[in-house]
């Protein structure tokens, strides 16, 4: 159930019972920002999470449908970075030729995200902005030090993923993600224990960044240097979520196991 309507009880809405809203279809990023500046407005693209939240009782006066903004679907090679439009679907990341050439490890890792239905409709931006504990897009982007590029009414704002920096105040539109490309950078990702824990490792030189998903309310990151006991990375993190879905001790232990395994020669490292 996604809603606790009143003290009287729970109500489960179907799509037909979501709160009414005004739908705006902007023709440009500028129009999108303008529409989103209205009170109680939200962007919508793939709609997977937003509609789910609306079924749970969340209400928006205005939905700004940005799915038609083709400039946010472009992947471009910027030399030392690959820029992926925020509206790029998981499927397009999984199959994109440029991504295959420039960031093959990321493409391989992204292939494990979501089921086929979600991969077709869900977008890169939606995965990041949904802020769901079980969503792993930000785990990967965080360890890679990706730049989340927002456009606001006052210009571009960049947030480095994985630093814990706050996202810009709305209205701000995530338009693209710039991912650094480096010949000596390796990436590995293990989602085999999802929904209990997922671990991404990005190694550059003698330093590795470890990102952890599912085990906390939002992704957590830490670094480890060559020569350190990789399993000890577990101790770098706070207490994990402890519930019947997965115990804190197990989640924590698995962070070390999976990270050590990947650093010892896992795929992509």
């Amino acid at each position: 159930m996604y809603t606790h309507a009143t003290d009287a009880g729970w109500i489960s809405r179907s799509h037909q019972a979501i709160a009414p809203f005004r739908l705006v279809r902007p023709a440009s990023i500028e129009e999108a920002l303008e529409a989103a500046a209205e009170e109680n407005a939200s962007f919508i693209a793939g709609g997977i999470d937003l509609v789910r939240r609306m079924r749970g009782g969340d209400r928006w006066q205005t939905l700004v449908d940005i799915s038609g903004l083709s400039e946010m679907k472009v992947t471009s090679d910027e030399g030392d970075h690959l820029r992926i439009g925020a509206l790029t679907s998981h499927w397009e990341i999984e199959t994109g030729e440029l991504i295959r050439k420039r960031l093959p490890n990321l493409q391989a890792a992204w292939r494990t995200i979501g089921n086929v239905r979600i991969r077709m409709a869900g977008t890169l931006g939606g995965n990041i902005l949904a802020r769901e504990a079980g969503y792993d897009g930000l785990v990967l982007l965080g360890v890679m030090g990706a730049e989340l590029v927002f456009v606001t009414s006052s210009g571009e704002a960049v947030v480095i993923a994985g630093t814990g920096a706050p996202l810009p105040d709305r209205p701000a539109l995530l338009t693209s993600v710039r991912i650094p490309i480096s010949a000596d950078t390796g990436l590995a990702f293990d989602r085999s224990l999802k929904p209990v824990v997922s671990v991404a490792v990005c190694k550059s030189g003698d330093t590795a960044t470890v990102g952890v998903g599912c085990a906390f309310n939002s992704p957590r990151y830490s670094t480890i240097r060559q020569g350190e006991d990789a399993q000890s990375i577990s101790s770098h993190f706070p207490d994990a979520i402890d519930n019947p879905m997965g115990g804190a001790a197990y989640r924590s232990r698995m962070v070390g196991v999976l990270a050590a395994r990947m650093l010892a020669g896992g795929n992509g490292l």
Binding site: D7, A17, A19
Partner: peptide
């Protein structure tokens, strides 16, 4: 149990039914 049916409403739309359910006091 959590989810046990307490009341039901029939309305012209599902949204109207939900809005009516929200007015029930238990």
């Amino acid at each position: 149990y959590i989810g046990d049916a307490v009341a039901a409403v029939a309305a012209e739309t599902e949204r109207q039914a939900v809005e009516a359910l929200e007015k029930i006091v238990v």
